[in-house]
Simulated scan of single mutants.
Amino acid sequence: MSSVKPKSWVYVLIFLALSGVLICAYVAGAIGNRELALGCLPLLGTFFGATFAFRLNQAKEHLIEQQRRKDALSWGLFILVRQANAVEGTSLGMDKYRSLPPAHRAFTYPAQKPPDYQDLVHDFADLKFVLDHDPNFFLLLTIEQESFHQAYAALRLRNEFFFEQVHPAIEKAQVNNRVITDDEMEQALGERLYHTLINTTDNALDLFADSRKSLPETIEKMRQVAKQYFPDEKFITFKMKAKLENSGK
């Protein structure tokens, strides 16, 4: 349980109250010049000592808060860079499929289980102070995080659908490793499986294209916010490994 620290005006009130007592005693003749001086000197020493300690503690707390904010901004940038790096890596594997016809893309894109990036989340409580600086950016940061996890959730959904429903249907229809037309594939699998796979594949690729474009922009915006708080500090940067091409975006 944290202790309540007195404000600076409390020390002033105590000093004035004790000074008033000494002055009243002097005026009433209860104490002489010597006693007044002996009473005032320790009082002044105590007052200035307490004031100095209060200011020193204020400066210490300010430094601690500044360090906490700098750490929060640095960690937030680190999370964004890791998200961008993950999206970039996954997107590079998608690029050669983007220019293919929808059905060909859906049935040839490999169904691999993507990594679990549940640790790549911002601590918005630590970044709450950014609300005072730029509430729109704070909202943008929450949307960016949701978009990142939504992209991987869509990819997992597509891959699970392929493994659990489409692949068994392909084996059952005995069309695996055969060259057939799109119409023949649709007829063999049925309209639901055929079109659901196309839609979920396109949805996943579109979400990754969106995040691949927006994450570097959000990183740069967060670096600008961090630099406005701490202009002399160095913060992490991120550069795209390759340009996004043939994404339809």
Score class of each variant (00 low, 15 high):
H133S: 14
A84D: 13
D206L: 14
V87G: 09
A188V: 05
Q66F: 07
I23G: 01
G49Y: 08
E35R: 01
D134Y: 06
K172V: 03
F52N: 13
S147P: 00
L189N: 02
N176M: 12
K243R: 07
T51K: 12
Y109N: 06
R158M: 11
P42Q: 03
H122T: 01
T196H: 09
K172D: 12
S8P: 06
I64N: 14
V179R: 11
G89M: 11
A53T: 07
L16P: 01
Q66S: 12
K221N: 06
L36K: 00
E65C: 02
T237S: 15
S8Q: 14
P168Q: 02
L92Q: 13
G49T: 07
E61N: 11
Y26R: 00
D116I: 07
N199W: 10
Q58V: 11
L80E: 07
A169W: 05
F48E: 06
K239H: 13
L139T: 13
F163H: 09
D210C: 08
I219D: 04
L141C: 04
W9E: 15
P216Q: 13
E160S: 10
A25S: 08
I79G: 07
W9L: 10
M94W: 12
Q112D: 14
I64F: 15
T90N: 07
F148R: 01
P231S: 14
G45Y: 03
T181L: 02
T46A: 10
L120D: 08
P6A: 12
G89P: 02
R212I: 05
G248E: 11
L207E: 02
P102D: 13
I79K: 09
A125W: 03
G49R: 05
S211K: 09
K249S: 10
M1G: 13
N33C: 01
E233K: 07
P6F: 09
T196M: 09
A173L: 04
D71L: 07
E88G: 06
I23V: 08
F161C: 03
I14S: 00
D182Q: 05
Q224T: 12
L215Y: 12
E184C: 02
A125Q: 03
A106P: 01
P135M: 03
C24Y: 03
P115L: 11
S8A: 15
T181Q: 03
R82D: 15
E144R: 08
P115G: 12
L155S: 04
F137H: 13
D116Q: 08
L80T: 04
T51M: 12
V175G: 06
V225F: 06
S2H: 10
I198P: 00
R212L: 10
D210E: 14
L141E: 02
A242I: 04
P110F: 14
F230H: 13
F52S: 15
F137D: 02
E61I: 01
G76T: 03
L44D: 04
